[in-house]
Design a protein around this nucleic acid. Sequence first.
DNA 1: CGCTATATTGAAGGCTATCAAGTCAGGTGG
DNA 2: CCACCTGACTTGATAGCCTTCAATATAGCG
Lengths: 253, 253
Amino acid sequence: MDSSTTIADANMLRRSYKLFALSQVHLPTGVGSTDLDRLDPLIADKRLLKRGETIFRQGDASHSLYIVRSGSLKTYVVDPVGGEQVFGFHLPGEIVGIGGLGRDSFLGSAEALERSNVWALPHAQLLQILDQLPVLHQQMMQIISRWADATLEHLVIMGKLRALVRLAMFLRSFASRHERLSRDPLNLLLPMSRRDLANYLGLALETVSREFSHMVAQGILTVDRREVCILRPDLLAAVCGDGRSMHAPNSAV
Amino acid sequence: MDSSTTIADANMLRRSYKLFALSQVHLPTGVGSTDLDRLDPLIADKRLLKRGETIFRQGDASHSLYIVRSGSLKTYVVDPVGGEQVFGFHLPGEIVGIGGLGRDSFLGSAEALERSNVWALPHAQLLQILDQLPVLHQQMMQIISRWADATLEHLVIMGKLRALVRLAMFLRSFASRHERLSRDPLNLLLPMSRRDLANYLGLALETVSREFSHMVAQGILTVDRREVCILRPDLLAAVCGDGRSMHAPNSAV
DNA sequence: CGCTATATTGAAGGCTATCAAGTCAGGTGG
DNA sequence: CCACCTGACTTGATAGCCTTCAATATAGCG
């Protein structure tokens, strides 16, 4: 990295960070909600969604990316026959609609899991900004990169893992996202229903419930509705590590 | 176009070429073999891989993008415990990068399934090529978008579909890629082993073999080792359409 | 020619889906 | 305020698809 470039871009970067502040990308300390708040007047399209409302639906014309400001969303596709497949849950600071980039329409739908605030960022505006500030491309790439990461992780989970391991891996992943939001990574509040979670994990609703109970019985966590408390992070990690295949010995403490 | 835009795009591509990693996408249709052939003298690093050799391995420093010229590859990740998960198979004309996807190192590995020719596009050369083929600038998002398409299709397959349906969907998808290569879409030559295919589909090796036999028994196709002949495309499509859930009646013709 | 890897096929068992009943929380209306 | 109802969740029993173990057959290869 060339330092003069870094310095020269510093100003633009600071101005532009507000676009991506608190996004999925880790930002330098000091770039916080203040910068994001300065973006406020630039965002023309702000929406307050109630539970169950959608930002966009599969097939809608795609012209914007969306930044979750509060609340949470799920994204999913409906396959031709009517089956639904959830492929992500999105917390504040995260960006949805990436699947609509470079296409005329969205690949899937995005629905609010609770009362949520969402900011729309039109592609045109985004491209204009990126053209003027190449430095931001790295930010953009990291955002897309994170999205790809999450998708690949999802694929691994769906691949050939036992139900217990799938749930454990999800909880660990969700906990780390919780932490990024300065929330307690051991006290999770799941915004999604058991049905959505089960769908995401490629399991039946009842199986998810059963595996929750299983971990509670082992003292790994406590569960009260959608409130999950991780009592033994070490055991939770052990569950993920052990269950590599289909045949995991129950003897695994 | 002004120079600043060009520079901006170049930066964007420089930052983002790693995103092509693990993609199943084709080059944009506007970049056909003619254009690829024009690139020939520009490509310094052309590699002939034997079966089992890798272009790159998970964790290697990522500095190049790869175009499959002949043969075929598989991309996969090895999860911490040793399990392997195949993400995709890549035919001629398709792009395989590696990608730390926004990182410095590759997210997975790419291995030749047969004797294959692969062109490497190091960072510096990529920039030159992009200057000569500005169409790539405009279509990069579409390439990413196609990658997203393929990944989501993979997710749907792994989600909650019966083994028979997974295999049928894969065959249809593979047939369409065959067709894009001007090959007979009804006479497939699968480059991957049953093990890799099973892994990709999230099934056991034997299950894939069994479902092949099942379709043969129904007269949908003939199978001889890795040679698959689709006799009844209509029935194959019906299999995909019917088996939406876990409980598909065997009565389906 | 024999060895190895790949693939097919069979049998038994397990993990998970499905069906079903029951519990609980939240919202509504009398 | 309370009864009722609806939806979300839990728990149990059964069935089924797929995995695993095991044996066999065939193609590729030195």
